[in-house]
Amino acid sequence: MTGICTGRVAAVTGAGRGLGRAHALAFAAEGAKVVVNDLGVGLDGTGGAAGPAQQVVDEIRARGGEAVAHGGDIATTDGAASLVATALETFGRLDTLVNNAGFLRDRMLVNLDEDDWDAVMRVHLKGHFLPLRHAAAHWRAEAKAGRPPEARVINTSSGAGLLGSVGQGNYSAAKAGIVGLTLVAAAELGRYGIQINAIAPAARTRMTEQAFADTMAAPEGDGFDAMAPENVSPLVVWLGSGASAGVTGRVFEAEGGRITVMEGWRPGPTADRGARRTPAEAGDTARKLLADAEPPQPVYGAQ
């Protein structure tokens, strides 16, 4: 199989279903050898089975590609380290890491248990940090040994992390943290030939099908299925390829046929009087600045 990722090795976490599966198949279709990571857990992170990861591996092999399953928990040091080791031991290299694994524990804030907070933070935020940390350590060592990599990392944020989402305080906070991690990692690791970007995808998956059952229904006949996870994967594959040289520290929204570069927080209206204000004066100034500022985008699910 040939394509823009020929000769590259990509590791995709949470690749047994949904977006991760679509990404893994798309990388393989473009010539990459793929490490398919998945614990096979339920939507809330409980349970576990090796089947989903192996099924994707079997699909890739049936289409003439190369892949290996990895069932380690990437939110642990050992699991993240073994993900990198599996790529190196099986295929001799690692070029691209796609951090995608996650699950939901949705509650309104007053009903959100500490365990639900910790579990979502663990899989999304820690589950991004640890694979990134171990992959980056390998690539830094390669660079210092005179073998500069053409390394790529694609992190998975969400519109919930950019705008917030009612009933998803834990998920929104974790996904916002992933954006911060992406920006810092891009700044720190660029010197070693490592590019890090993030996507905020919208697609029909197990995590979204209940919340968006009406708007995310697949079309009948030959109509374009705007919410198919496969629509997001072409951008991910390009970001994970050598063709994306020079693109780092960016956040993209991807949905259907639409790709948007998100521009993030930028300074808006400002006032500096060169001296301390009283609280009343600070309030007056803030109200004047707010009157000149762009209104914020609405939080998902807000009335």
Score class of each variant (00 low, 15 high):
residue 64 G to A: 03
residue 98 V to E: 00
residue 54 Q to N: 09
residue 97 L to H: 05
residue 254 A to F: 00
residue 227 M to R: 15
residue 147 R to A: 14
residue 102 G to I: 03
residue 226 A to S: 05
residue 156 T to K: 01
residue 288 K to M: 13
residue 116 D to Y: 02
residue 109 L to C: 11
residue 64 G to P: 03
residue 64 G to W: 13
residue 55 Q to H: 06
residue 139 W to I: 02
residue 29 A to R: 08
residue 256 G to H: 01
residue 40 G to I: 12
residue 6 T to K: 06
residue 202 A to P: 09
residue 215 T to C: 12
residue 68 V to S: 13
residue 37 N to C: 05
residue 207 M to H: 15
residue 229 P to K: 02
residue 150 E to W: 14
residue 143 A to R: 12
residue 207 M to L: 09
residue 251 V to L: 04
residue 57 V to F: 11
residue 274 G to D: 07
residue 105 R to V: 04
residue 118 D to N: 11
residue 82 S to W: 08
residue 33 K to V: 08
residue 117 W to I: 14
residue 260 T to Q: 06
residue 69 A to Q: 00
residue 83 L to S: 02
residue 298 P to V: 15
residue 109 L to V: 14
residue 236 V to M: 02
residue 267 P to W: 05
residue 272 D to Q: 15
residue 19 L to R: 07
residue 142 E to H: 04
residue 226 A to H: 11
residue 115 D to F: 05
residue 210 Q to M: 05
residue 79 G to K: 01
residue 81 A to R: 10
residue 278 T to G: 14
residue 49 A to H: 07
residue 151 A to N: 08
residue 78 D to M: 12
residue 220 E to M: 05
residue 22 A to P: 10
residue 105 R to A: 10
residue 177 G to Q: 08
residue 250 R to K: 07
residue 16 G to T: 08
residue 53 A to D: 03
residue 67 A to F: 01
residue 86 T to D: 05
residue 1 M to G: 03
residue 110 V to F: 15
residue 298 P to Q: 07
residue 83 L to Q: 02
residue 191 R to E: 06
residue 106 D to E: 14
residue 125 L to S: 12
residue 204 R to A: 02
residue 159 G to P: 10
residue 150 E to L: 11
residue 301 G to V: 15
residue 141 A to H: 08
residue 226 A to Q: 09
residue 94 L to W: 01
residue 279 P to H: 11
residue 43 L to V: 12
residue 204 R to F: 01
residue 232 V to H: 06
residue 77 T to F: 07
residue 216 M to E: 05
residue 143 A to T: 12
residue 98 V to N: 00
residue 32 A to I: 15
residue 280 A to F: 01
residue 204 R to T: 04
residue 71 G to K: 12
residue 99 N to S: 14
residue 157 S to E: 02
